[in-house]
Amino acid sequence: MSSTIDDAIGRVRGRFLDLLRERLVVIQSCMSARSSDPAELEQALFVVHKVAGSAGTLGLPNLGEVARTCEEQLLRDLHAGGTISGMGFAYLERFVDFSHSVLEAYSVPAAPLQAVPRAAFGR
């Protein structure tokens, strides 16, 4: 791949990682609540769907794959009962851990856990 494309991808990857940091706050908020609110599942699904769709192109195929398997589990949860199952939380935890390791590798400091307005991430 030419350096022009590499540079272009590098620029977008930086913005993706910044956004990933914000998106992780949403996921962590869902996980800490462990509620049976269907909206929590939709929030989490939205995040992992977006990450699964773009991480691979940005040179982060493993993160994309972890997000994809998490999305598949959350879709099963959506069809089963509409709330995040125990297995769904396990997959989310794996996704969060993996994301943190990617952020660390690219030296983007993790944000402190805080609530993010839901409207900002609505589907």
Binding site: S2, I9, K50, S54
Partner: peptide
Amino acid sequence: DDPIILDLLNEIIRSTT
């Protein structure tokens, strides 16, 4: 609706075409 995909397309297409 994903700003990252829009950014990516914008960057790739503008820098190579």
